[in-house]
């Protein structure tokens, strides 16, 4: 990542798992669908659109492994987006991710950066998920 990257900062509880880079891209159709679902302005990439990339199967699989138990449910606790450079449609970007667990209280933290092929940082995202017990499953 670029010199402005915020990756590899301190992680208080655990060494982070590093994923990527993944190739990501804003397809016009996906951006429009996201805009319709969120009430965004037509013809503009929604500001929060990059969160869609966190649903990448490899990211979800890594998160599931870190949560480590089907009897736990992730609850979104906080989220941030910092945009250094506005994304454009039909351009290839690269996304790198760091993910780590906190034990008390149980949380999953995720930090992602999206950059151009020239390593210019465009978007940084941070997500914190609180991990809560799925009570009925846990009792089974």
């Amino acid at each position: 990542m670029s010199a402005a990257s915020t990756m590899s900062a301190d992680h208080p509880n655990e060494s982070p798992l590093r994923l990527g880079p993944f190739a990501v891209r804003v397809e016009a159709q996906a951006s429009e669908a996201f805009g319709r679902a969120t009430g965004g302005r037509a013809g503009r990439i929604p500001f929060t659109f990059p969160v869609r990339w966190l649903a990448h199967p490899e990211v979800r699989a890594a998160a599931a492994r870190m949560i480590g138990n089907a009897k736990w449910i992730p609850i979104h606790e906080s989220q941030s987006f910092d945009v250094r450079r506005r994304l454009e449609t039909a351009i290839d970007y690269r996304m790198r991710i760091e993910m780590w667990r906190e034990a008390k209280p149980p949380r999953l933290n995720l930090r992602a950066e999206v950059a151009t092929d020239a390593d210019e940082l465009c978007v940084a995202m941070e997500m914190v998920l609180r991990i809560v017990s799925d009570e009925r499953s846990a009792a089974q």
Binding site: F47, T48, I75, Q79
Partner: peptide, 20 residues
Amino acid sequence: RAGLEAPPVHGMLLMSAFEP
């Protein structure tokens, strides 16, 4: 099962509403 009375709105959907 998560102790909620009904399905909660995605936090990100609510957060997205700040932009408009």
